[in-house]
């Protein structure tokens, strides 16, 4: 440790390696529920996490018709131009998320739960999988597949 800068460089290098390790380990291997909708029309720009709508949760409680016919939700992720004013005024999500049928708008963090920067999408949709081939599978999952096949 003759040169203090060399010591610093070593620490920096070590931190870099550690950070790189963390990054590699944390690459999102998104595998949320089929039909989870990420809506990020305005959220990122407004400094909020994107909203996530879980179809599975809602279809246990309501038929498709309630939202898609009665409330006027189009069958298109991000295609409904929903904003908080509309929700507060009782449109779209606000028809139920009014503190009466379901939690009210003050629970921001229950809907705005997406990782920042996640684009609007129908998660796990066929078209999403077609457009983005699955990332190479690590060996561990590959072996798992082989075991399952036995």
């Amino acid at each position: 440790m003759r040169d203090p800068r060399a010591w610093l460089r070593r620490i920096a290098f070590a931190c870099l390696v550690a950070a790189a390790g963390l990054f590699v380990a944390d690459i999102p291997d998104a595998r949320a529920e089929y039909g989870d909708i990420v809506i990020n029309n305005y959220s990122d720009n407004a400094g909020m996490r994107p909203a996530i709508f879980p179809h599975w949760f809602h279809r246990i409680r309501f038929r498709c018709k309630v939202c898609h016919a009665d409330l006027g939700f189009k069958f298109q992720a991000g295609g409904n131009d929903i904003d908080m004013v509309k929700i507060i005024d009782g449109q779209f999500c606000g028809a139920c998320h009014n503190g009466d049928i379901a939690w009210s708008v003050e629970n921001c963090n229950l809907c705005h739960t997406g990782k920042p920067g996640t684009r609007t999408q129908v998660h796990e949709s066929t078209i999403q999988k077609l457009a983005q081939p699955a990332a190479p599978q690590p060996a561990a999952t590959a072996r798992k597949g082989r075991e399952a096949a036995k």
């Binding site: 999102p28 291997d29 949320a32 529920e33 996490r49 599975w56 963090n109 229950l110 809907c111 997406g114």
Partner: peptide, 17 residues
């Protein structure tokens, strides 16, 4: 699940499928 932000407290209040 990769799309919800684990750093958000609300995420942990949500129902698990």
């Amino acid at each position: 699940d990769g799309i919800h932000d684990p750093a958000n407290d609300g995420t942990h209040a949500l129902m698990a499928p």
